[in-house]
Write a protein that binds this DNA or RNA. Sequence first.
DNA 1: GCGACACCCTAACGAACGTTCGGTAGCTCG
DNA 2: CGAGCTACCGAACGTTCGTTAGGGTGTCGC
Lengths: 214, 214
Amino acid sequence: MSVSTSQVKLRVLPSGRTRILDEAAKLFLSGGYGDTSLRDIASAVGIQPASIYHHFHSKEELFTEILRIGVEHTTRAFDEVTETLATTLRSLDPQETLLAHIEAHLIALFEHGPYTAANIVAFPVAPEAVKSAVVPIRDQYEQRWDTLLQSLATSGLLDPNLDVRMARRILLGSINSTIEWFTPKQYSRKKKDAQSVNDLANVMTTLVWKGIAR
Amino acid sequence: MSVSTSQVKLRVLPSGRTRILDEAAKLFLSGGYGDTSLRDIASAVGIQPASIYHHFHSKEELFTEILRIGVEHTTRAFDEVTETLATTLRSLDPQETLLAHIEAHLIALFEHGPYTAANIVAFPVAPEAVKSAVVPIRDQYEQRWDTLLQSLATSGLLDPNLDVRMARRILLGSINSTIEWFTPKQYSRKKKDAQSVNDLANVMTTLVWKGIAR
DNA sequence: GCGACACCCTAACGAACGTTCGGTAGCTCG
DNA sequence: CGAGCTACCGAACGTTCGTTAGGGTGTCGC
């Protein structure tokens, strides 16, 4: 008890800038860019609208930063999986590789919630200036998927008629759109159709790999 | 030449209300609900903002109507395919059935452009009142897909481990997300990767049916 | 030829918006 | 102790927003 309470709080609780980002991400996620005002964000954080300008130059910069963080989380998750798989000695089943990356993407989507999810629902209707700022780092992430799928293709593991870039877009599109209907087990209230992110990843991978046909 | 020019124009050109809907749909599609003002819409149509209120009670009603029309187009397209397939005497290949419905959905998405597309990109960040007004008719459409897939499942044509509702959600999610990257041949400027909606439907169907694995 | 109605106008309302400015409390460090 | 910095506040700015009120003009049925 010798450590002062204020010091502990400062370490544990998010600082001002992070608090703004967290609350803003939630609001942008549910209301988009135009319908979320800086006054909404400020009141969610418990500060005055003017105080936001101490941390960000403009509303657009704040929004761009949120999208950037979201992509960053996803990219890092992808790279960690790649690294883990590389250091694993056992031979790599291609379907397991796919599963690991799909799961990582889904975890980023549902676990780091608002930041990543905002990239799905709020990006398409974002101001042009925001879009063009985020597109380059989104491209970097998509490039990783292209590389992964291409390596599977050159190993002869994919349908040779498949357009890899097209397959990647459809694949990521289907994964991302789960944000609109899936609720992970731990957050769901009704136990009925509740499943874990892991379950979802398994279903998605099987579906992508083998299709829906018997 | 006995028919007066004005009469012909009145039949061919969209009337005031339709013009408003058309322009508004385009703007809502690219900017979402909050960032699209009635003044933007009015100036695109070439009228005054106040004139919109002669046709719609509020901005929300206008937006809701656009989303409603979009779903209506998609639903009608689905039903027309069902009817056509029913009156066709030859036996129905399940994959062809799927292809026909996927193609119909994609045509509605890219041909009736803004109305249907707005349901994909602008709906998730729409005001709650708008969402709850559109959800019931969206459900009706999704119900048709559930029925279709369920009939395939009970015929033993689908993977028995498959959750039909989940598969439908993933399937529709992947189809809908094409709106963010696909540009049909006739509209595309660069000939390189240009393909028709029909081509896209074929790729999607094969992918959904058999997966990406060789 | 005249009321009724559809359609669009000008003008303006109050509210909400992003943003700016000057100031202040508290902490750090010489 | 006091200069300097971080984090925030209160008040206000000019602008834009959705919406309303009231008026004008053309067309159509009677």
